[in-house]
């Protein structure tokens, strides 16, 4: 096993634990935006897609890469935009003096 691979595995495991810590604190209220937002982040595969599509050797790998760029871009752009649209709808009750009874 190469040193670089070992290092990558270390990062992977630590990032999973970090993810668990971060996500456990998100209230159910925000689970849908969390999901679409994290979904957009998983579109990071776009980075790999760009390299595959841009290598300039032509042929199958570039075509596959281009399709990957389209897929991943929809994932990223659609994901972040729809999350923003959703989060824009969440508003706090302004009439704090009203008798809504929230503690």
């Amino acid at each position: 096993m190469t040193e670089a691979l070992m290092f990558s595995i270390v990062i992977f495991v630590l990032a999973i634990f970090l993810g668990v810590e971060l996500i456990s604190k998100v209230p159910p209220l925000l689970h849908t935006p969390l999901m679409s937002g994290s979904n957009a982040i998983s579109g990071i595969t776009l980075v790999g897609s760009l390299i595959a599509a841009g290598e300039g050797h032509g042929g199958l790998s570039v075509y596959l890469g281009t399709i990957a760029v389209i897929f991943a871009t929809i994932n990223v752009v659609g994901g972040f935009l729809v999350t923003d649209r959703m989060l824009g709808m969440f508003k706090k009750d302004k009439k704090t003096e009203s008798k809504t009874g929230t503690p």
Binding site: I11, I16, F17, G19, M35, I44
Partner: peptide
């Protein structure tokens, strides 16, 4: 590529 590994792991955990 570590940025893919990190974000993939975060989303996987989520």
């Amino acid at each position: 590529n570590n940025v893919l590994i990190i974000s993939g792991a975060l989303v996987g955990a989520s």
